[in-house]
């Protein structure tokens, strides 16, 4: 990979000011949306639906920032791998820790 001319000089011409402003608009709308949705009780769908929606919006916003502001979209595969791996490892930490908490005796988190 070191000598692969493909990946080197990250080309600069894929983002233009209108595109940056477009991504920015998505982020602002997402922020307002997440604020607004949080005031509505979504528990009638299922308990905790509010959190799920909030996290979905947050992930969308994060994806926008990473892909376009941080130029991951145009980056070499290795950088995609670094991003995916770090989230995957965080997921391992969440999953295995919660696997313990969710299976404690009779659902009680004894301390």
């Amino acid at each position: 990979m070191a000598k692969d001319p493909e990946h080197v000089h990250m080309e600069h011409d894929h983002m233009t000011i209108p595109k940056y402003l477009g991504v920015f608009a998505v982020l602002v709308v997402g922020t307002i949306l997440t604020y607004w949705v949080a005031t509505i009780d979504l528990d009638f769908i299922f308990p905790g639906a509010n959190t799920l929606v909030a996290l979905l919006i947050a992930f969308t916003k994060m994806a926008c920032v990473m892909l376009f502001f941080m130029h991951v979209y145009w980056s070499p595969k290795l950088i995609w791998l670094a991003v995916v791996a770090s989230f995957f490892w965080m997921a391992i930490m969440f999953a295995f820790t919660m696997a313990d908490y969710f299976t404690r005796a009779t659902g009680v988190f004894t301390t």
């Binding site: 604020y35 949080a38 979504l42 959190t51 996290l55």
Partner: peptide, 10 residues
């Protein structure tokens, strides 16, 4: 922001 500020808003 959503995890700290918005979680009990509804």
């Amino acid at each position: 922001f959503p995890l700290l500020y918005l979680l009990g808003r509804h």
